[in-house]
Design a protein around this nucleic acid. Structure first.
Lengths: 318, 318
DNA sequence: GCCGCAGATGAAACAAAATTACACGTATTG
DNA sequence: CAATACGTGTAATTTTGTTTCATCTGCGGC
């Protein structure tokens, strides 16, 4: 339509706001808030999620203040407008708020439940990424990629699946890898390791006696030991390279712990890093694995229910 | 003015929106978009961040469509208003924005790699949540919670770990559960099932011949069968209750597939739902499991490196 | 004690933004 | 070749947010 005015307005609003985390800023300026603004802050902090869905009129009504006061409140927080405040809040919120409040949401239907569980899962992965020590990760990738042989240790229910998964991830790359969940086997295998070998130990609690012992045995024989565990635990202290992950456990025993997702993510990252490091060698192995699986699909034709029996389109290996 | 209307409007907006992940929804409905809506989608996907800061007029101008078209676009995406769309987008953003660009980021250091892998993982879970059929989920929870005995079937590398994990989740609740990855065992076990029993089959590809057969056998004996798989696959068609999950596979073979995270999330949700359904019965089982594990911790004192050997503070079961 | 000032707050006018209603054009089908 | 359905834009309307200005309150100086 015209040219001068809109562009100026645009430039102002479309610029990325300096504010990163409204929630923490809110806490920071809390002291300098006027009484009326404080009331607004109270309403907002009471339910961030809802605050993002309210209009300025609703928020004002709830806080029992006038609408201009709400606008002023937003300005105090460093936003230029109420809408910017809402967007910033929503952006800040993402996983964190839902994740934190999740204990409460628990009682409802399957949808609510799924929301809780899955947001926690996604949150755990994110949390893990936030706190990840990339230097340690890099060293772990180097160490494992250079290993002639890799042992994976884990103990306890949750770790069983993880260890199994880790084995597959590395195995697919053509690495000679073994996984042990039994304490005796762990120690026995550890005793046969050599300096050119590697160990990957997985334990959320970091207190599994057999795993820690096996790691120490492996170290005494010169093998490089990598641990995925919680900081400050025996396992973290005894491994050469510790990849530390702290995930807040929910208090509700009925929801499975989300830390598994974080561990799995670390394992995947290790696997991807090793694959990259190994370059063509691993790619070749991966190709051969896929090819063979596809061939098996051909050799054993699936029953009539299968629409495309000859060549599975999707990830044959699952 | 009047009294009935405003409250109704309020109620509508403050209700939590069904939409969880706008970005993945946007991709999913892409085909059913009209030309003008497509143009809006293009502008939005070009820069999500900026989209959250734009007014409807700006967005319309950029997409070269009228403002009502933008509103219609939002409705198509399941939002009731443009503002809701913006908020949903902003909420989605932090996780999803990077997730989408992830293929490109791949070549760098360990940090970059971790970012890619983990964002994909978190994205997979979110994507899963967004497309989840909660009705099917609810039915699955009911069916499994009512089962006297539960068999879990899966085949192939990736599923092995998942099946193991699923077994543990249900086992912890005090349910009599068995997991089989071997085809023969699956069929044999399926043949011993009765109408009061349940089956949980897990397969991303949905084409595992043995799993499909085992499910069909189980059904023929009257057991309730639940499948977690991809839509339109043989497994999805043969199970009583199909929980369908479509996760885009990455093109880079070196990065492990993120669909496992989604499956795990579904399993966790099932477990949480069953736990809730069973109420005190499962809580008791969980408590006993934890207690016993703690006792074992006492009976086998950990070495001196362990700061708190008597009573592990964190999740002893991992 | 009272005047005047500074800051906080709300009412109301105003401006911006979003939605609705409606009309027009195009494609599709009987 | 209607008739209908669909997609789209224009314009009116409603909703939402911001600015302006008046009022109130508390506080210090005269």
């Amino acid at each position: 339509m015209n040219e001068g005015k809109p562009s100026k307005v645009q430039r102002g609003r479309l610029r990325k706001p300096a504010t990163i985390d409204i929630v923490s800023r809110l806490e920071r300026v809390d002291a300098s808030l006027s009484p009326a603004e404080r009331r607004v802050a109270d309403i907002v902090t009471a339910d961030y999620e809802m605050a993002t869905r309210m209009t300025i009129a609703e928020l004002a009504a709830r806080a029992e203040v006038s609408q201009p006061t709400v606008t002023r409140f937003c300005r105090t927080l460093g936003c230029t407008s109420f809408s910017e405040f809402k967007i910033s809040l929503a952006t800040t919120l993402t996983v964190a708020a839902v994740y934190l409040r999740s204990e409460r949401i628990f009682d409802d239907d399957a949808g609510q439940l799924a929301h809780t569980v899955m947001m926690r899962a996604a949150g755990a992965v994110r949390e893990c990424l936030d706190q990840l020590d990339t230097a340690a990760l890099g060293k772990a990738i180097d160490a494992l990629a250079a290993s002639h042989r890799i042992d994976i240790y884990g103990q306890g229910g949750g770790s069983a699946a993880l260890v199994e998964d880790a084995k597959l991830r590395l195995f697919r790359l053509g690495l000679p890898v073994s996984a042990y969940q039994d304490g005796h086997q762990q120690r026995m295998s550890a005793a046969t390791l050599r300096p050119c070998d590697g160990v990957l130990a997985i334990s959320n609690s970091g207190r599994s006696k057999t795993v820690v012992e096996a790691v120490e045995i492996a170290r005494s024989f010169g093998a490089k030991t990598v641990a995925i565990t919680r900081p400050g635990t025996p396992l973290a202290l005894s491994a050469d390279i510790a990849i530390l992950v702290t995930i807040a456990e929910g208090t509700d025993v009925k929801i499975p712990t989300p830390s598994r997702y974080a561990h799995m993510a670390v394992i995947d990252t290790l696997a991807a890093g090793i694959a990259k490091k190994m370059g063509d060698r691993s790619r070749d192995a991966l190709r051969r694995v896929r090819y063979t699986l596809a061939r098996i699909g051909v050799a054993i034709p699936t029953p009539s229910t299968d629409p495309t029996p000859l060549m599975p389109k999707h990830d044959t290996e699952e």
